[in-house]
Write a protein that binds this DNA or RNA. Structure first.
Lengths: 339, 339
DNA sequence: TTATCGACCGCAAACGATTGCGAGAACGTT
DNA sequence: AACGTTCTCGCAATCGTTTGCGGTCGATAA
C-alpha cells in the first residue's frame, strides 16, 4: 500500500493548465503570468505538493544520495565519522545510504555493487579488515563515480584519502613517555596488513630511535582488544619482562592492560605509564584517566564529505589528495610521572 | 561528471531490436524467441548492463529504501540497532537511508519531511529527547507510509512499537538489590516525558512496593549522564542522605556514580551496591564490573525491520503491535553482596 | 485459396518532472 | 493593411523501464 502523492499533473488538471505551465509557474519562470503563478502556487500549497525526488533523479541523472560503506557501525569511531558525514551531507541537501561490510570482503563487494547501479552521486568508504583486493573499488573508479576513502584506505586505488596522522600520533605518544623517564616501552600493536597499524608501530619506533632508545622487537606484542591487552600484560609480567610503559594501539587494549596492571598491584603511572590511541570515552571512565592520542572521527567525516562534494560538483576529475588530520596527544594521569 | 551507464536502449540499438523486446528478453518473457533472448543476454552481460534502480523506482512507485531516523548514531545502543536493521534490510534487498535528529525536534521534523517526499518505502524511527509533539509522524501515517517505532516510541501515534521491557528490567534490577539486603535504593531517573524512562521508574517503584519497602520520592533523582551521576552522588553523600544502593537509568550514569563513590571511599557493593541499565561495554571495563540490565539493540533492529517489511508487503493496513523484548538482568560484582 | 492461429516483435503510454520550440492572441509600428 | 513584438502558454521529447495491445509473417487447417 503506497500513498497517493499529489503531482504536477493533479494541479494542472484542477486548474486546466498544462503540466509544463504548472512546472514553470512553480519555478517562477518569466514566461508565466503573475496571475497564473498565484493560482498554481496557492493550489500547490493547499494540496501540499512536493516534487517527486525520484522523478527528478531520473531526469537529472543525480540522486542526491551518498553511499557510505563502513566496516561496523557499532565502532564508536566509525559512528562519529558517520555523524560528521551526515551533518555535512544534510547541510548540503544530500542523504546517506548506509551499508556495512561487517569486516567481510564479500559484503563489501556487494555493497559496492549496490552502489554502482547508479543510485548514488558518490561514495565514502572505509575498507574491511579482510579486504586484500581492490578490484571492486577500481570498478567504481572506472565508472567515474566519485570516491573518497577515510581512515582505512585502499592504498592501490588512486583517489582522495582522509586519514589521521597515525605515525605522528604514535611518535608523540612515545616521545611523551620517554620524556617522562620511561626506558622500556611496550607497544601493543594491531594487524600489520593495515597501513594505519604499521604507521603507529613506525611512529613508536622512530620516536625511540630519535630519542636515544633502542627498538627492541621483544617489546612489540600483537594485541588489539581488551582481552588480549589484559592477557599479554599478564604474560609480560609473568615472564619477568622489564617494562615501565605501555603504548597501546587502541584504547580498549590499553584498558585491558590497565586491568591486568591493577590486578598485579602495579602503580600507574609510577610503575608502568600508559598511553592509548583513539581517545574514546573510556579514557575518562577508568581510573586513573588515561592518556590517549585524540583522533576526531567527526572531523574526519566532515572532511571526507566535503572532499566528496567537491568532486561531485566539479566538471572534470580533480587531482587526488591525501588529507592527513592531526592526531593530538591528550595527556592524563596514566602517564604523568613528573610533576 | 556522471558515469554513462549502459541502458536497455543501448542494447536495443546495438542489436536492432526495440527496447520492449530487450526488456522482455531480459525477463525471460515467453513471447520472445530463444535466439533473441540469447543475443540480448549475451550482450547485456558483455556490456555489464544493470537496470537503473531509479527508473524502476519511478515505474514501480517503490524505492526499496527504508528511512531510519535515530537521535544519535554515536550511542552504542543505537549503533547496534542500526546494525540489526541493516542486516535484515540487506537480506531482503532493501537499502537504508540514515538520518539523525541529534536529539533536536527541528532536525527530526526535517528528516520526516525528507522521507515523506516519497523517497522511501517505509520508516523506522526513534524519537529525540526534545520531541514533545508528534504531528510530523502523524503526517507520515496520514500519507500511509509504513512506520515502526523502536525504543523511544511516540505514544500517541497508532503504529507498531518495538521496545524492551523497561518496566520488567527495572523491576528485576531493583528486586535483585532488595534480595541483596539493600534497604534504601536510589534511582537515578531519566526525563519523564519519555515513556521508557517512566517505565523504568515505575518498575523500580513496583519492585519496592511488592517487596516490603516504601517508595521514597527523595531517593529518586534526575540524572542521566556520567557527569550528573557523579555530581548527584556527591550531593547525596554530602547531604547525608542514607542509601545503600543505586539503580541508574543507564550505564553512563552508573559509571559516574561509581566514580563519585570511589572518590568518597565507599566500598562497592558493600557500602553501596550498583546496577545500571543497557549493559554497554563499559560495564566490563570498570572495576568492579557492574551489573546492568541487558537490552539487545541488534535484536530490536531486526524485529523492527521485520515488522516494517510485513507492513510494506501487506496490501492493507495491519493491526498495530506492541512488541516488548525481554530485558535481562546481568549480575556482576557491583551488586553481589552475598556470597 | 482463404481463414485461423501461434510465434514473435514493435508502438505507445505510463511513472513525474523539465525544457526547447512553436503557436496563438493582442498590441504597436510603419 | 501588413508586419513585427511581446506575452502566455501547450506540445512533445526526454530520463530508463515496463506492459497492454496490436501487427506481421509463416504455417496449418478448411
Amino acid at each position: 500500500m503506497r500513498s497517493q502523492h499529489v503531482t504536477i499533473k493533479d494541479i494542472a488538471n484542477e486548474l486546466g493548465f498544462s503540466v509544463s505551465t504548472v512546472s514553470r509557474a512553480l519555478k517562477n519562470h518569466p514566461d508565466i503570468s503573475e496571475e497564473t503563478k498565484r493560482l498554481v502556487n496557492e493550489l500547490a500549497e493547499h494540496l501540499r505538493y512536493t516534487p517527486n525526488p525520484i522523478a527528478l533523479s531520473l531526469k537529472n541523472r543525480s540522486s542526491s544520495m551518498i553511499g557510505v560503506i563502513v566496516p561496523e557501525v557499532v565502532h564508536y569511531f566509525f559512528a562519529t565519522v558517520i555523524s560528521g558525514i551526515e551533518d555535512v551531507a544534510e547541510r548540503n541537501g544530500y542523504s546517506l545510504m548506509l551499508m556495512q561490510s561487517s569486516e567481510q570482503l564479500s559484503k563489501e563487494v556487494t555493497a559496492v555493487a549496490n552502489v554502482m547501479k547508479g543510485r548514488v552521486d558518490g561514495v565514502l568508504a572505509s575498507v574491511s579488515k579482510q579486504t586484500n583486493t581492490y578490484e571492486h573499488f577500481q570498478k567504481l573508479m572506472d565508472e567515474h563515480i566519485p570516491l573518497v576513502f577515510f581512515d582505512r584506505v585502499a592504498d592501490d586505488v588512486d583517489t582522495t584519502h582522509i586519514t589521521v596522522d597515525d605515525f605522528g600520533g604514535a611518535y608523540s605518544a612515545t616521545k611523551h613517555l620517554i620524556g617522562q623517564g620511561c626506558k622500556n616501552i611496550v607497544h601493543f600493536a594491531g594487524p600489520q596488513n593495515r597501513k594505519i597499524f604499521r604507521d603507529r608501530l613506525n611512529g613508536y619506533r622512530q620516536a625511540l630511535e630519535n630519542n636515544g632508545l633502542f627498538f627492541k622487537p621483544e617489546l612489540v606484542v600483537a594485541a588489539d582488544t581488551l582481552d588480549k591487552g589484559a592477557f599479554e600484560t599478564q604474560r609480560l609480567l609473568a615472564q619477568g619482562v622489564v617494562f615501565d610503559a605501555i603504548f597501546a594501539v587502541n584504547d580498549f587494549t590499553a584498558a585491558g592492560a590497565m586491568r591486568a596492571l591493577k590486578e598485579a598491584k602495579k602503580a600507574i603511572p609510577q610503575d608502568v605509564a600508559l598511553v592509548g590511541f583513539g581517545d574514546e570515552s573510556i579514557t575518562l571512565m577508568l581510573e586513573p584517566n588515561f592518556s590517549s592520542v585524540h583522533q576526531s572521527g567527526y572531523e574526519m567525516g566532515q572532511k571526507a564529505m566535503e572532499h566528496l562534494l567537491m568532486q561531485i560538483h566539479s566538471e572534470d576529475k580533480l587531482p587526488t589528495e591525501q588529507v592527513v588530520l592531526p592526531a593530538e596527544l591528550v595527556i592524563r594521569e596514566s602517564s604523568m610521572r613528573l610533576s
